[in-house]
Structures are given as C-alpha cells and as structure tokens.
Simulated assay, not measured.
Amino acid sequence: MKKILITGAAGFLGSHLCDRFIKEGFYVIGMDNFITGDKKNIEHLLQLSNFQLVKHDVTNFINIEANLDYILHFASPASPIDYLKIPIQTLKVGALGTHNLLGLAKAKKARMLIASTSEVYGDPLVHPQTEDYYGNVNTIGPRGVYDEAKRFQESITMAYHRFHGLETRIARIFNTYGPRMRLNDGRVIPAFLGQALRGENLTVFGDGLQTRSFCYVDDQVEGIYRLLLSDYSNPVNIGNPNEITIKDFAEEIISLTGTKQKVIYKNLPQDDPLQRQPDITLAKKVLNWEPKVNRGEGMKITFEYFKSLSQEELFKSEHKNFKEHIKK
C-alpha cells in the first residue's frame, strides 16, 4: 500500500484530497494544526484503518517514522481574511514549512507536490495567465505575505529538484470552490453565499468588473492527482478558464439562492487582482486534464452544502481556533 502525507488535511482542499487518495487505495497520513482547518472535514475518515491523523505545525521539525512514497503540501492560510490576520504564520508555513517538508521528502525519497497558487501572478499584466509569466506582485503590500510565501515555496522546491534531484511537482491552483469551504473567510463564493443565507446585501469590491474563474473541487482534485503521478516537474496551472465578472457572478448568486438582496459596492482592497483566468493549455497537454463540472452544476451542490450548516456556523465570524494563534 502506497503511503502519502497530506498537510493541511483538515482544510477545504486537503480534506477532499484525503478522500481521493483513500479511494485510490493509499495509506493516508493527514497532518494539520487546525488554525484554519476543521476536524469535522475528516471525521468520516478517523475510523479507517488506512488513515492516520497527526496534529502538528509543519513550521516545526517533522518526524514521520513510516516510509513515505508521496507528500502533498497543502498547509497554509488560503484566504485574504486568514493571511491578513496571521501574516507571520502565513510566511512561515510557506518558507519554514516547505523547507521542513522538502527535507522530509529527501530523507524518505518521496515525491512531493506543493500547492502553489494563481496569486504568484499578482495583479497580472498578461491575460490569460500562462505558466511562463513571472507575475506583477507588490512584495511589501498586505497581500505580499501570501503571494511571496508561495513564490518562495516554488523557488525552494525547484532548488531541491535541481540540486538534490528530488522529485517535485508544482500545482498553481486557481479559485476553487465546493463543499467544506469555510464561510466568512473572505473568498468570493463563501462570502456571497453566506451573505445571501443571512439575508444581507451582497458586497462587491470595486466596480465589479474584475474577473475570476472558478473551478469545482472535484475537477481540481483530479488535476492535482494527475499532476502528482505525472513526470512533469515545472509549474502547471490547475483551474477552470471560464471567466466571469464579479458583478455578473453576484447576480448569479442572487438567482441561485432566490433571495431579494441588492448588490452594494465598496472600495477595492489594495493589490486585489483585476483579472484572473488560467491558460490550461499545458495541463491539457501533459496531464490530459480539463475541468468537467460547469459552474451552474457546481454552485448548486455548493449552495446545498451551505444551506445545511447550522445557524452558529452561518453567523460565526472566524474559525474557533483562530484567535489563539493571532499573537503567536
């Protein structure tokens, strides 16, 4: 049985990846410190003989006694609210955490895939974004703690690949959505759905003409799975190229939820990207992958998930474990 370590296992994407690798017959070691992850996302796996949960902060030394075949590094705050409130931890998990895991992968002779992000492109001057575009990032802006953490993560991963011959993979993940997203974390879809379910007006920042491209989680997981098992070591965009303006998307949410809210406008946050659309030509070529779930279908599933949440979950402002880490 192949063994895989998945960091950030109790998070949105991490928990879905645990599900997928369990389904594929792997022994999965899930690691999380639960700053932003939620144990309920993986509760259904805890009784399985081929799943092990380890509570640990990857910025500290990592000791895994078992042999490992693969490592997926998905531990990181991944939303604006998260990384603006815990900027130091965001930088540390991208730098120290990645370094620790690369060292572990080298010791175990394991293949390692890192979760990079479309945020490495910053507010792009090239559209759509291709993997050979170096980006337009404000290194000292408030979003820089996340953008630069991910850019450093890519750099050190490629350094280990070139210098040590480590097998590495880099997934540049574009906006992904689906069940288990955390409400009120600052990302577009949970923000809009949360506002709609609470009877609030939908908040659009700027003029609403900025664009995003949303990929359903099952498609994202499939792309990551194929990339891990591929022979390609350079970064690959994994996302859905179907682009929409935020203004039009807000209207889609109102139609989907059947609510009567209005759209209100507020100032655009500093360095918020105006365009976001992946060029997935490379993913089609090297992975034979492209998304299958259209936004209408995926949003219906996601809306049903959010409707099932309790009132406490619907109205709480942040993760229950979040505050204790703010000052660390």
Rank of each mutant, 00 (worst) to 15 (best):
A283L: 07
H161V: 01
I64Q: 04
I301E: 14
D218M: 05
K55D: 09
L101F: 05
R276A: 14
Y70F: 14
Y232M: 07
D272C: 13
E251I: 12
V236L: 04
I114Y: 00
V120K: 08
A78I: 08
E304P: 03
N41Y: 08
F249N: 11
L202Q: 04
I81N: 14
G14T: 02
K307H: 08
I86L: 07
Y83I: 02
N175R: 10
E324G: 03
L96G: 02
A115M: 12
T90M: 02
G8M: 02
I6A: 06
D147Q: 15
L68D: 00
L282C: 04
F214T: 00
I35F: 04
R198N: 14
I140N: 08
H99Q: 15
Y146L: 01
G135W: 10
L113H: 01
N288K: 14
L68S: 00
G25R: 09
I140W: 09
S317H: 11
R182E: 14
S15L: 07
L53M: 05
G206V: 11
A10C: 13
V263E: 05
G199K: 05
E65F: 06
D147G: 09
D218F: 03
P179E: 12
N184W: 15
S76I: 03
I64V: 13
T90D: 00
T203E: 15
E313N: 13
C215R: 09
P128D: 12
H161W: 06
R187C: 13
V217D: 01
T157H: 00
S255Q: 15
Y70H: 07
V54I: 15
M1G: 08
I140G: 01
I6T: 03
D132Y: 02
N175W: 13
K85Q: 12
L209R: 12
D279T: 07
K285M: 14
K284A: 05
F214S: 02
N50S: 09
R295C: 10
L45N: 11
I173H: 11
F51R: 05
R182T: 14
K3P: 02
K300V: 13
P235C: 08
Q47N: 15
M158N: 04
Q210Y: 02
P291C: 11
H127L: 12
Q210H: 08
I156K: 00
K260Y: 01
Y216V: 05
H16I: 09
